[in-house]
Design a protein around this nucleic acid. Structure first.
Lengths: 221, 221
DNA sequence: CGCGAAATTGAGGATACTCAACATCCGTGG
DNA sequence: CCACGGATGTTGAGTATCCTCAATTTCGCG
């Protein structure tokens, strides 16, 4: 589906499903953001959308009283911030130091007709985001705390993997706001998984060693 | 954004943001489905995607033990079922009797290049679904039962509206599985809203009269 | 009019939250 | 290089919200 039209130029490692119009440096410009820096805010004009080169980005929405829901963490290769109505519907921030390529949003409309390859790639990326969102709604609406954490760890492992050890670049607060839990519950769930021998938490707490993926998959529900 | 390229032919009332390549009857074929009939199942080949002509469609995912999350209800004008990987990631069923137009999915890829207008419309529809999904994740992860129900009622009212009275074509089970609640909690929340004078529940229970939208908006969080 | 499905209501309980204390980490500066 | 302090994370006790189980009512349809 949506097969690659041009070869990946290898500037950035991209997931297999992502194609390549994004790899043409001429279309976008790279910029660096520091930890916790805002990339855009909910309500801002959506002049640009972005592809992650390195680092992790969180996108979230807030309720008026401050409750926060992080809808996704965006890893290298991911596209985010493309909007249908010219206004960003969520806020995007750098989790750690981040490098992004920005693309002018007008290209989506203006070049939908004369740059179909780009339009197709944005479509593929958007469909991918939607699929992830649907999976995440299942988690938020119907999974227990332990199931949520197990799902989260396995999902991260699949995307960031480097055998066994998963990096956790985000804080417990971020994880909690992504899974619809509190930080205490996230912490307790991780501790519980460790006591069951399914994972190990290194001293610095910014990573997780998956000791028993089969058990994690069972716990994921 | 994504401005209309061809005039709406008026076959079906579509949201303002939806454009019109879908209104060309030549591209798709209409089919009727009866109440609770399956349109496609999770895992099926995604040969087609669909636009709702009349009626309501639910799309959902299941956990192995039967827990269900309805990610969206699709109303007339909505597009659903377009997939990035040729396989449907959720099941779609008719809530009541439904009429749909089906489009061959290969058109997405095959005609992305030679039918950019169609590709652009699918992109717009997909972005719209993603925006709804993000809003719904906020609801699922961070809202209380009453806030969920208030949000749901107002959302339906905006989309189905016919002054004051909102039709509820779906059962309490469907509503519960959409909001991440149980049917008992949905029922109690509705009763509570009624006791507060914010809504009225007609005898047949398949509709809701919104007596005080301002109050509902406050309760929505 | 009667039956089965859907919805409501109630009582009790479990999961996750709140509030709080404590531990650990990490960067800063002496 | 070590000590300090703020930020981050863990653990505990008590509680609230929502769930489970169950009984009852109401509705829709033959």
């Amino acid at each position: 589906m949506l097969a690659t039209l041009e070869p990946d130029m290898g500037l950035v490692r991209a997931p297999a499903t992502r194609s390549d119009a994004f790899s043409r440096p001429s279309l976008g410009s790279t910029r660096a953001y520091r930890k916790d820096e805002e990339i855009f805010a909910e309500g801002d004009d959506a002049d640009h959308f972005y592809r992650v080169v390195s680092g992790v980005v969180r996108t979230y929405k807030l309720l008026s009283d401050g409750r926060r829901q992080i809808d996704a963490f965006h890893l290298p290769g991911d596209i985010f911030g493309a909007e249908p109505h010219g206004v960003h519907r969520f806020t995007a921030e750098a989790v750690g130091d981040v490098s992004l390529v920005g693309y002018r949003s007008r290209s989506i409309e203006a070049t939908a007709l004369d740059n179909p390859a780009l339009a197709r790639d944005v479509l593929a990326a958007t469909m991918e985001s939607l699929a992830r969102a649907q999976e995440h709604m299942l988690l938020l609406g119907r999974k227990s705390a332990t199931e949520k954490v197990a799902t989260f760890l396995l999902g991260l492992a699949e995307r960031m993997t480097s055998g066994g050890v998963v990096d956790l670049p985000m804080t417990r607060i971020d994880i909690a706001d992504h899974l619809g839990l509190t930080i205490e519950t996230v912490s307790r769930s991780l501790t519980q998984l460790e006591r069951q021998g399914v994972i190990t938490l290194p001293a610095n707490r910014r990573g997780v060693v998956l000791k028993d993926r089969a058990a994690l998959r069972r716990l994921r529900a």
